[in-house]
Design a protein around this nucleic acid. Structure first.
Lengths: 353, 353
DNA sequence: CTGAAAGCGCTTACAG
DNA sequence: CTGAAAGCGCTTACAG
């Protein structure tokens, strides 16, 4: 029975007040449940009925102007277009924002940005009184935060800032890579090759380091088992071909695209995956892993979780700021979970120790 | 020399007025270049200098409250997460919004949504006085627009509404598919198989229809050349295997994932792509096409363009609404461009007519 | 328990 | 050419 009428003009707090026979002040109090304010249950009921009757929705703009809180946060993403699945960062951020009754505004920034560009994008959020700003980057480790980012509470995704004053969340590339080796070792592999990336990005170093960690704690040699290549299918193809000379029983690729090349290399050499050769990727970049024969075992990046974490941290920061209790900014490192599919099996023959 | 000071408190229009020795009214007029208002160049210069000096930025919230225009538009996307590359819809929408000095807020909706859910998401935009709302769907053809979507100017991406009252933009799946056949025919192919999808979505029908169009205008028979399969790599594999019985010289797959299966099927039969068999996909779903050997010729969906178009249409509509001139809502159909890579070659032998 | 008044930071008739 | 005043729709001390 709620307003199926097509209300011409949206009604304001004054309309509700008039209909309920009280002042706007009282309407505000009951609808917001203002603390330390007692309103008789009878009056409150009348107000609620009137609000319902009129389909009253408080104007958030007006409220924001008065309370100096827009309840909006801005997400500045670096090149959402080219990033594998960065849409999930947005999704995580948006859903967490909704949970907290916050609106998420987004602006995309170019890759390799002109710092002044970024500042002007941030300014756009500032102009709209964003309560806080999230800066999501890819391919970076530590960045110099744009100057005006510090004018409001902020959070970083995918990088730390040089000053270390902004809460940041990062994927645990290193740990994820190490867990791949652990799993491979547990399956009986001893000669595990790594098709590394030649790109100069933090992920390159982190994943290589994780591979090294895993091999080291299993007491395994990596001698001749690391080959560098381009980070695409072609690079993975070449790297795997080179690796195959060393007769590994498994090859762990820097990313899924390289793993795709590894499949091709295996086919060229007449090797079956996973019976003759196990292959593992990284990124869980849909739709690749599921489209391969057999489906690729890989490691996922916690995009959704990073987006959600950043919003949560920012919201807490904003609360803290309001209460005058700024929070510490320890970089949060989120797990990169191993996604097991069908490209790993025990080695065909026991490898000699 | 602009404000390298860390301004404690952000300054308002009153501060500028005081510094320039004029009234807030005058400041507003010169900064907004209000039409039909002449301010002496001398005064104007003083105002601009003062604004610059103080790093004054108008509070958009306050302005919005006064002008009844938030300059914000809402984008409600259906399941951005699972859609191949729908991030580009957001990108296109955001960039067009920035060009028009509009802010884009986004909310994601579940797939197969509870209509009431959608209404409450839209309500969130309405509460924030969004000037307009874009509703982006996938996998639909015509939808029943959520009731409250009509309360403000709106635009649809990927679907038309039953009433036909909302501007809508759609990809020309049919034309894109037809252009694939045209190209194949121009290269000399006559026996062109189609690995169709069994999914019941508009894209299925559109692409099949386009294939049929192309074959018809080339006067080619499709007898036994259409095989239906699941819309993933496995489905493409099976469909292609079946198709190969009919000795086609080219197979056109419903999407890139199926094309991936086609590559596998060709390999199983000892067929080289493109010399023995040409393969074409649809979607240009990164990173698949570039990761295949050889790189896959396919058709791209105009995600970016649809996002940008919707914002432009909406902005015009809002303008029109303000000027009391509502626009007509003809569905806009955007081209799906053919992306030629390396998976197509002339047929090895002249096929008998 | 309830309300009158001020004010958030702007813009905009209107007057001079 | 310039400014005083009202008002957008709320919330919040403060008073009663």
């Amino acid at each position: 029975m709620t307003g199926s009428r097509v209300s011409e003009k949206t009604s304001g707090i004054r309309d509700v007040a008039a209909l309920a026979g009280v002042s706007p002040t009282t309407v505000s109090h009951v609808l917001n449940q203002t603390p330390h304010t007692r309103v008789s249950e009878e009056t409150a009921a009348r107000v609620r009925a009137a609000a319902e009757e009129l389909g009253y929705r408080p104007n958030r703009l007006a409220r924001g102007l008065r309370t100096q809180a827009s309840d909006m946060i801005g997400l500045l993403t670096e090149e959402i277009a080219t990033t594998p699945h960065a849409g999930r960062i947005i999704l995580g951020a948006q859903e967490e924002a909704s949970r907290r009754n916050l609106t998420l505004a987004i602006i995309n920034s170019e890759l390799h940005p002109d710092p002044e560009m970024d500042e002007s994008q941030i300014q756009a959020f500032l102009d709209r009184q964003a309560d806080g700003i999230i800066y999501a980057t890819v391919y970076h480790d530590v960045i110099e935060a744009p100057e005006n980012l510090l004018m409001r509470p902020a959070a970083l995704i995918g990088a730390r800032d040089t000053a270390g004053s902004i809460p940041a969340v990062l994927p645990d590339e290193r740990g994820g890579a190490a867990s791949v080796v652990d799993m491979l070792v547990a399956r009986g592999h001893r000669r595990i090759g790594f098709a590394a990336s030649a790109d100069d990005v933090p992920a390159t170093r982190g994943r290589l380091q994780g591979y090294l960690d895993g091999m080291a704690r299993a007491g395994l040699s990596t001698d001749g088992l690391i080959v560098e290549g381009g980070s695409d299918a072609r690079g993975g193809y070449r790297a795997t071909l080179a690796l195959l000379e060393r007769e590994p029983t498994a090859v762990f690729c820097y990313n899924d695209r390289m793993a795709m090349g590894a499949y091709r290399a295996a086919a060229d050499r007449g090797l079956q995956i996973p019976s003759d050769l196990s292959v593992v990727g990284f990124d869980d970049q849909a739709p690749l892993p599921e489209s391969l024969f057999p489906a690729l075992t890989t490691v996922a990046l916690p995009h959704y979780e990073m987006g959600a974490w950043a919003v949560a941290a920012l919201a807490d920061l904003i609360q803290g700021t309001r209460d005058g209790q700024p929070r510490a900014a320890d970089p949060e490192v989120l797990e990169c979970p191993l996604i097991e599919r069908d490209s790993v099996a025990p080695p065909r023959r026991r490898a000699a120790a």
